Amino acid sequence: MTKPRGPYAKTSSKRRQIIEAALAAYAEAGSRKVSVRDIAQRVGMTDAGVLHHFGGREALLTAVLAARDAAAEERFGAFEARGADDFLRVLAANASTPGLVKLFVDLAAAAAEPDHPAHEYFSERYDRYRRRFTEQLIAHASAEPSTTAERATAAPEAVDEDRAAEAAWAARILIAATDGLQLQWLLDPGIDMAGDIRRLTGVLLDALAERSRPVS
């Protein structure tokens, strides 16, 4: 791939610098709000100069969340290869950066507006998670492999439409519960988000397995 040169290379480099500064600011902020000025001061720029590279505050914040996803890929492996335990580790790791969790919750709500800069990001993200979780739930509810690792990575087998629909429903519930727990956790950091989702996953898997058993 040809590396960018000239003004574009400088812009790309500056964008990365700003995003890295924003990630650091949110990681260190705890529950305190992070302003564009906080980010700008870290890179020696004006507020307007920072926003110029993204087109606006909301677009900048969307880029920050996308960068958090990329960092998770590096730390926990490719999204498509993650098993259930990997997703729980990501959720547990998020508890170390409440500022980024708050940013996600705030931006997710605002992104429901079709013209919001984060609308496409969240639409694609939820679709991606629904598909991956549905695949994993179908694999779990089908033939029982011998190890947890095999269950987490097993390719989904041919299943009837009812079972696929049940797994898709369970995937939506898991995602909804995860988002809701993040909000509750911001209000009560004593909540074990990963532990609660692990328990809910077990309940849903039991329910799917029960429904998949043939009637005698």
Rank of each mutant, 00 (worst) to 15 (best):
V203F: 02
S216V: 14
R32F: 09
R172K: 15
E74P: 03
S216Y: 05
A93T: 08
I173L: 15
A22R: 00
S12I: 04
A72K: 13
A71E: 09
F87N: 06
D106H: 04
A152G: 12
F79S: 05
K14G: 02
G30D: 03
H53Y: 15
T153L: 06
D47C: 11
E73P: 08
G55R: 03
A71D: 10
D160H: 11
L107G: 00
T147F: 04
A118W: 00
A112V: 02
L61H: 02
R37A: 09
D162L: 13
A154P: 05
E58I: 03
P98G: 06
G77V: 10
Y126R: 11
R131E: 09
L60R: 00
K102Y: 07
S12V: 10
D160W: 06
G99Q: 06
A27Q: 14
A63W: 00
V215K: 08
T201G: 15
I19R: 03
V43P: 10
I173Y: 10
V159P: 02
D160I: 10
D69N: 08
E73C: 07
A207L: 10
Q41E: 14
L205M: 13
A66V: 04
S142R: 09
T2K: 13
E28F: 09
I197M: 12
R163F: 06
R163V: 12
A93E: 15
T148V: 15
P4E: 01
D47F: 05
S123P: 00
G202P: 04
Y26G: 09
V90F: 11
R82K: 09
N94E: 13
F133L: 14
Y26H: 11
E80S: 15
V101K: 02
R89W: 05
I175E: 07
Q184Y: 13
G195Q: 10
A29Q: 02
S216K: 12
A177L: 10
L186F: 08
P117G: 06
S146Y: 05
A70L: 05
M45E: 10
V50R: 01
A67S: 12
L103A: 12
G202Y: 09
A67D: 05
L137M: 14
P214R: 14
R15D: 01
A155K: 12
